[in-house]
Each structure stands twice: as C-alpha cells, then as structure tokens.
C-alpha cells in the first residue's frame, strides 16, 4: 500500500445520507476476479443515462469536478454490502479521501485497509465546506493525516478522528497482514490451548 500523509485535492460533493455500496458499485461489476473495470462502474446508475452516455447533472460529471480527489458526502456513507469493491472503485477513480458526517463500519474498515482515507467531520464544518464548494466548484482542501486535520479553503483547520494504529499504518505504509504475522507465536499458543470448535474437513466429530 502507498503511504498516505498530506495532500491538497479538489473536492466534489455528493450530498445524500445513507449512500449504500450497491450505489457505489453495482453487483454487475462484482464478477471480476481482480480489480479491473471497477472505476468505470463507480456510481454507475447515477453517473450514466440509460443510453450509456454520462449524465451531465451528476456532480462527478461536471467539468469543474474533473480531477477531484476528495469526495464529500452525508451520513452513514458506504452502508449495506461489505464489498471492498466499493473503496476499490472510489480509489480506482482517483479519490484519496472521503469526507462524511459518518461512515458505515465495514466500509470504513475496508477503506483504511487500502489507503482511502475516511474523514468524519462535524456538521458545522460540513456545512462550511459545502458552501465553499457551492461558491467555487473548484474548491480544494488540504488533508493532513499526521496532524489529523482537514484545512478548509478559508484556512480553518478541522480535526478528525482516526484510530492510532490505522493512522500509523497509513503514514508508514505498514502492512496489516504482516503485523498479524508477527504474532505467529501467540496464535500458535492460542490454538494449542484452545480445542478446535469445528473441523470443516471432517464432519462427524473430526473436530
């Protein structure tokens, strides 16, 4: 994973609550065995008209939104299906961070694993950011992960929460699987001390 630290990015707003992962990436795109084609499927039903041409009214399709790397949205973003294809699609499209009032648990976990930064801000800062975007559709924000801050266009720095471990992993590009592997001894000790609860290879008491 690429380390994430500090960057300045253009913001685009998709203001709605409870945007589910079926909207972020519909099931038709989940038939891949890699991550190909996911960016094209991002927000597919909203982004394209029924004839397959881009919907000019969809915020991501507006010319000013070209090159945006920060998505601003509402409450409970990423609810529904656990598909990691959703953060993959957002990242594949070019997003580095999503600013929201809250995130669904699995989506937030999945995003942190791949370096797509989920940023929760308070309602007042959210409103302020949206009004900046309304005034200037090419608004940018500065995201500063080490200091856990988003700097709004007016210069106001808004703090955001992130768990210390995820932050450390993102900044240093630490691989979480590698971290678990360091505990091999403890895992083996746990297994030795704990009788297996099931054995999928052997039904009928093989456990």
């Amino acid at each position: 994973m690429e380390p994430v630290t500090t960057f300045t990015g253009k913001v685009v707003a998709l203001v709605a609550d409870d945007i589910d992962t079926d909207q972020i990436i519909p099931a038709a795109y989940l038939k891949v065995t890699d991550k190909s084609g996911l960016a094209e499927g991002l927000f597919q039903a909203w982004r394209y008209l029924p004839d397959g041409t881009p919907n000019p009214d969809f915020p991501l399709n507006r010319p000013e939104a070209a090159g945006a790397t920060v998505l601003v949205t509402g409450r409970n973003f990423g609810c529904g299906s656990s598909r990691e294809h959703a953060p993959w699609a957002l990242q594949g499209y070019g997003f580095k961070a999503v600013i929201a009032l809250s995130f669904a648990d699995i989506f937030r976990n999945n995003s942190l694993k791949i370096g797509l930064l989920p940023i929760v801000v308070d309602e007042e800062s959210h409103r302020e950011l949206l009004s900046h975007i309304e005034e200037d559709p090419e608004t940018t924000v500065r995201v500063d992960l080490p200091n856990q801050q988003v700097v709004l266009p007016g210069g106001r720095a808004v703090s955001f929460p992130i768990d210390g471990f995820a932050k450390h992993c993102l900044i240093h590009g630490v691989d979480q699987l590698g971290f678990i592997q360091q505990h091999e001894e403890a895992i083996a000790a746990y297994e030795a001390a704990t009788p297996a609860r099931v054995n999928t290879l052997h039904p009928d008491g093989g456990a």
Partner: peptide
Amino acid sequence: GIGTSEVGHVLATQCLL
C-alpha cells in the same frame, strides 16, 4: 462481515485485527 483484505488476513493467519 469483512472485506476482501480481511478475508486475506483470515486465510493467512486465522486472525483479524
């Protein structure tokens, strides 16, 4: 439920963070 990165973690280590 978990994401695919975590599926990899469990396959490799039988554990999750």
